[in-house]
């Protein structure tokens, strides 16, 4: 299990390949990658602020919970902070499990928790100015299914 919070970009292919390697008892690996999405009026950049210390604790707790609940053999979470442009990768999760259902569900569970329970805040910069991204009700509602 590994959790990384970093400013630097990461190489999704390298990370996914390294994660998948050597798991002889894991028949399934699922990965998810979040990418900075352009907005209607043109996004110049996104800045992500976080709460050093709490962020790592929250992500590790969520990864542990996912491992216990879905019988995962391994979990990787990478989440960036700082300044990112449209098209850049913000974060990724990878889950490994003996069977695919657990790997898929573990990744979804992690993403749902990470969206609204890990202390990150996004601010979008467009030609019109800067605005904090508001949390969505649907993200909060998504937690109720777990």
């Amino acid at each position: 299990m590994e959790v990384r919070v970093q400013v630097e970009p990461f190489d999704f292919g390298v990370e996914a390949a390294a994660f998948a390697e050597g798991h002889t008892k894991m028949g399934a690996v699922v990965t998810f990658t979040g990418i900075v999405r352009d907005v209607a009026d043109g996004l110049d950049r996104m800045e992500i602020e976080h709460y050093p210390g709490m962020t790592e604790k929250a992500l590790e707790a969520q990864a542990h919970a996912a491992v216990g609940r879905f019988k995962l053999g391994d979990v990787l979470v990478i989440h960036r902070h700082g300044t990112m442009r449209p098209g850049e990768m913000i974060m990724m999760v990878a889950t490994a499990a003996p069977h695919r259902t657990d790997a898929f569900q573990g990744a979804e569970f992690l993403m749902d928790y990470l969206k609204s329970r890990a202390p990150f805040w996004k601010k979008e910069y467009t030609a019109d100015g800067a605005e904090w991204v508001a949390a969505k009700d649907e993200d909060e509602d998504a937690l109720s299914r777990w």
């Binding site: 709490m54 974060m91 993403m111 609204s116 329970r117 890990a118 202390p119 990150f120 805040w121 508001a134």
Partner: peptide, 10 residues
């Protein structure tokens, strides 16, 4: 103690 708006990770 930390105060902040609802989180927007992922």
């Amino acid at each position: 103690v930390a105060f902040f708006p609802p989180m927007t990770g992922g």
